[in-house]
């Protein structure tokens, strides 16, 4: 899969009662001049990310849309739940439809004029890679010519609630920041040996599988992890590359943070002759690993 365009927005939100969220409307307004009404922050993250990745370039009609979110429209779902459980009232129709997984994709595909394949997938901390795999399945079979892959997760306010949801409220000291973001790749089938290419995401159940898999690979100029490796992992990675780096934040991370890491790696392209490949490696708190090869040659 060749990368035609990429975009990533990573916001760090200071936790606390006065937490504020940076406005997303200006990011949308760059590419769509009339304000879109009735969309919540979750949908804004989707639309802002998607439009800025496309950046006005014409899209092939056979473009599939592969969306990923770990937690979905939490703030609107929470509003709905307050309405039904605390206030014992009917949920507002608009809130209810915005809790549904499709709504974000509806607005984005409408703006982009796309009518083909669209899915919303999730796989805990590897949700972005799950969407990437779906794009790969359809690209390599020739069902689509182009794939727009986007992952987004929001920080619902108040942050104290979100830290509880993420099971981070009882950590001492609790995280001072939370991340939210929207991370995108526009991919096409590789037809010529130019540009940055991605391999299919590859799942590895544990460090033993990771070790074995790395042994079978040609060398990588760099292995970038979206987590801080523990000492055993650092040792393992050092056996397979001269250079490994971590793309992490000390904040409570959002569900598709690994998408930020992958887009960062694509941007940096830390490859040097003669080794023209790097590796994106991610894992959730309890594994498994997922690896994506980033290469200046077709993978």
């Amino acid at each position: 899969m060749r990368v035609r365009a990429h975009y990533s927005l990573l916001n760090e939100i200071e936790s606390g009662p006065n937490a504020t969220l940076p406005a997303l409307e200006p990011l949308i307004a760059r590419w769509h001049h009339t304000r879109i009404r009735r969309i919540d922050r979750y949908i804004q993250l989707c639309v802002a990310g998607g439009l800025n990745c496309i950046a006005g370039q014409p899209l092939h009609p056979q473009t599939g849309v592969y969306l990923a979110s770990r937690v979905g429209a939490v703030s609107t779902s929470a509003k709905t739940m307050i309405q039904t459980e605390q206030k014992a009232e009917m949920p507002k129709p608009l809130h209810f439809v915005n809790t549904l997984g499709n709504s974000a994709g509806f607005y984005l595909t409408q703006l982009l004029g796309l009518t083909g394949t669209a899915v919303v997938v999730s796989q805990e901390w590897l949700s972005f890679e799950s969407a990437l795999l779906h794009a790969w399945l359809d690209l390599q079979q020739g069902r689509i010519d182009c794939a727009l892959v986007g992952g987004f997760d929001e920080v619902p306010l108040p942050t104290s609630h979100q830290l509880e949801r993420l099971d981070q409220a009882h950590i001492s000291p609790p995280p001072t920041h939370l991340t939210e973001g929207t991370h995108w790749l526009l991919l096409e089938r590789s037809t010529s040996p130019s540009g940055t290419n991605l391999g299919a995401p590859h799942w590895l159940a544990d460090s033993q599988e990771l070790d074995q898999w790395l042994q079978q690979q040609k060398p990588f100029a760099c292995i970038q992890t979206s987590f801080t490796p523990d000492s055993a992992e650092a040792e393992l990675l050092a056996r397979h590359t001269d250079h490994h780096q971590a793309f992490t934040r000390t904040a409570a991370l959002h569900g598709v943070f690994s998408g930020a890491a992958l887009v960062h790696l694509v941007e940096q392209s830390p490859v040097r002759a003669p080794i023209r490949r790097a590796l994106h490696l991610t894992r959730g708190p309890e594994g498994p690993y997922c690896a994506v090869i980033v290469s200046l040659e077709p993978v």
């Binding site: 770990r70 979905g72 779902s77 929470a78 509003k79 307050i82 796989q123 799950s130 949801r165 569900g255």
Partner: peptide, 16 residues
């Protein structure tokens, strides 16, 4: 109502 966390369980992928 001040303290209780609405939508306390998150993660579409948890069940799988």
């Amino acid at each position: 109502p001040e303290q209780a966390v609405p939508m306390p369980i998150v993660g579409y992928g948890k069940l799988a």
